[in-house]
Design a protein around this nucleic acid. Structure first.
Lengths: 205, 205
DNA sequence: GTTTGGTTTAACCATACGGTTAATATAACA
DNA sequence: TGTTATATTAACCGTATGGTTAAACCAAAC
């Protein structure tokens, strides 16, 4: 680390980890710098403030998520195929990048306005995921009588809730149940199976 | 405010609002005291540290949530009736107390261990919601062939995800869709309808 | 080998913040 | 009314933290 030209990347990566673990206010600029293998001043040299670094991290995280999702939407699937594939792709992707849902949810609560603006920015620049196209797809599924849900917004909320909250809510459910669920791979496999079944059975007409 | 004997309550209430809005590290002790109409030192007089106050707030929030849920479980419903009633009760309750899901999710991310411990404490003292009884109920539904999901943990994750993430994720979905959803009552009514339909159709055998 | 431009550092700075203290006000009650 | 226990406050305190600065380092260009 601390090798020229990669310092900026190292800071971004370390920032992502720190912000995901402690949220914006909990994150310490100095800790980020240390984790990136450089001096605190470097961070300000490249990002000029904690806030700016945070925004860069958030934008990066959102960008990665939607890049990943772009493919599923481009594929023009049937709703059945969509519900079979979407949870798996999304859940596995988040499992590989557990910092992303944390940052996302943290920011969603702390500052919904900022979150919305950042997302709007992503869509404007990065065309890999086109929300209007996705919405149109969902609406046409309903018009063709393929899915029961008439409101695309609630369709999305259902699909996304089940995927994202798998991560955030897991400790909660474990605490209620007292059961420590199997770690890693086994848990995600079971989770995907359950979500896919629920969505296919519950949303298809 | 600042009237004897209610100061402690005022601080707890103000703390709940502040922690919900900014998370633990983002919350300012001084801001809480001011919002409670008293001096910062009062806060330490009653709660001795920010951390202790936070724990009290979290415990209170969780206690209220599970007190609310206790009734549904005690009622020994059929799975069909359960899925008809649970989302409505839960979503409406959270809508009336929007700080609760925020605090909960904040803490869930920041410190899952602490969250688990707090919840275990709640169950030990407050018997209004009995997790083992609830799990038993779900398991028996499956054994009787009434529901498809064989794993009570994933049953719970599904049900809870759909309810809680309605709140947290709403700005996200609005940002994707570009549609600003109807406020308050109309949104929650639609949300409950969608979740109930999905659960009944998707989880009942 | 000297200039030049981006990169890196150590040492600072101001302040915001959690927490303390010692003194005062208030209520309870004998 | 005097005594005691609880509430409440203003004034502090030490430190952690975001941010700055000025100087040094170092590669490439000339």
């Amino acid at each position: 680390m601390a090798k020229t030209a990669s310092s900026k990347e190292a800071i971004l990566a370390a920032g992502r980890r720190e912000f995901a673990a402690r949220g914006f206010s909990g994150a310490r600029v100095e800790a980020i710098a240390r984790a990136a293998g450089c001096n605190k001043a470097m961070l300000f040299y490249y990002f000029s403030s904690k806030e700016k670094l945070y925004r860069a991290v958030l934008a990066g995280a959102l960008g990665e998520i939607f890049a990943e999702l772009g493919g599923v939407v481009h594929a023009r699937l049937t709703p059945e195929r969509f519900m079979e594939r979407f949870p798996g792709i999304y859940i596995r992707f988040l499992a590989r990048n557990p910092d992303l849902p944390r940052i996302l949810v943290f920011d969603l609560i702390r500052d919904p306005e900022n979150f919305s603006r950042t997302m709007a920015g992503i869509f404007r620049e990065n065309s890999e995921f086109n929300p209007q196209r996705f919405l149109g797809m969902v609406r046409s599924w309903h018009d063709q009588g393929l899915i029961a849900e008439e409101d695309p917004l609630h369709f999305m909320l259902n699909v996304i809730s089940l995927s994202i909250f798998s991560f955030v809510g897991r400790p909660m459910v474990e605490a209620i149940s007292g059961l420590r669920s199997e770690d890693g791979e086994a848990f995600y496999r079971a989770r995907i199976r359950s979500v896919v079944r629920l969505l296919k059975k519950g949303m298809l007409k």
